[in-house]
């Protein structure tokens, strides 16, 4: 149960990070101005968020897989 919950939370956090990266990149809802993000630093933030998001999703999926297997 703990494994499934943590796996799900981690995957959701990762997924939100990826969605946020694309929102930031395409400047939906004028989010770049809202967060005072300059165009020079945008690639760095995007890269960091994408790496964080991807790792979180994969790690979370491992835990989810284990959670479902043990049922």
């Amino acid at each position: 149960m703990l494994t499934t919950t943590i796996g799900m939370l981690q995957s959701v956090i990762g997924g939100l990070a990826v969605i946020f990266t694309y929102t930031l990149h395409f400047n939906f809802f004028d989010v770049q101005t809202m967060l005072n993000i300059t165009s020079e630093l945008l690639p760095l933030y995007s890269f960091a968020l994408i790496v964080f998001g991807s790792f979180s999703i994969i790690s979370g999926l491992f835990l989810l897989h284990e959670g479902f297997e043990s049922r």
Partner: peptide, 9 residues
């Protein structure tokens, strides 16, 4: 969440 996930993995 990440620390717990790390320990579980």
């Amino acid at each position: 969440v990440h620390v717990l996930a790390g320990i579980l993995n």
